[in-house]
Design a binder for these strands. Structure first.
Lengths: 96, 96
DNA sequence: CAATTACTTATGTTTGACGTAAGTAAACTT
DNA sequence: AAGTTTACTTACGTCAAACATAAGTAATTG
């Protein structure tokens, strides 16, 4: 079973940034002063984009930190929706 | 010393939602099926808006989850900026 | 062939969101 | 007035996840 079509920020990093720019995870890790495993795990979808990571990416790539955190937010919301935890559906919208 | 003007999502919840609607934290907690302390801590800026919390707020208030997570994102980024952690400034933007 | 590049995995720490529970107090019910 | 519900806070322990260090394996480059 697949998490059909929910795209992790690490995938974006790899496909839309590293590969087109001819960069390796190793080089990026050096350039933004983080351990290699942090990047390795992000790329494999095993770690989220933290505020710290988003800021570092943004400095290096010239994007905004919100771009990266927004990708993470979208991903997390989608994951949660697929989960469909029981009691959330029972919530009734407020009526004054 | 104050965290000048950085506004926590809990403050928004209280001032822009609970108070105008005449709602208490107690009632909201019941309505969205979470423990009271989760709300209490959010309102006092001691806990962040998680994906779960954002979805529950959105169901009840008719907002989007991204509204709440966006507030949290803005807050976290601002906090991080005020921190000014040393090595982040050393990052050089990528040049092909 | 040695050093650097490149990536992964193992291990341990710490932070923070979580729930349970207990405490206090005020505001209603009966 | 006593008891229930509302209202909020704080203490405590758990768990997941982001973190760093470090070690291991390959491939590439000087």
């Amino acid at each position: 079973m697949e998490k059909l079509n929910n795209i992790h920020p690490g995938e974006v990093l790899k496909v839309e940034f590293l590969e087109p720019l001819g960069l390796t995870a190793y080089k990026l890790a050096k350039a933004i002063f983080i351990p290699q495993n942090r990047l390795s795990e992000i790329i494999h979808g095993k770690r989220s984009i933290s505020v710290d990571t988003a800021i570092r990416f943004s400095k290096f790539f010239g994007t905004s930190p919100k771009f990266w955190l927004g990708l993470q937010m979208d991903y997390d919301l989608e994951e949660k929706k697929l989960e469909e935890s029981s009691d959330i559906q029972e919530i009734k919208a407020f009526q004054e």
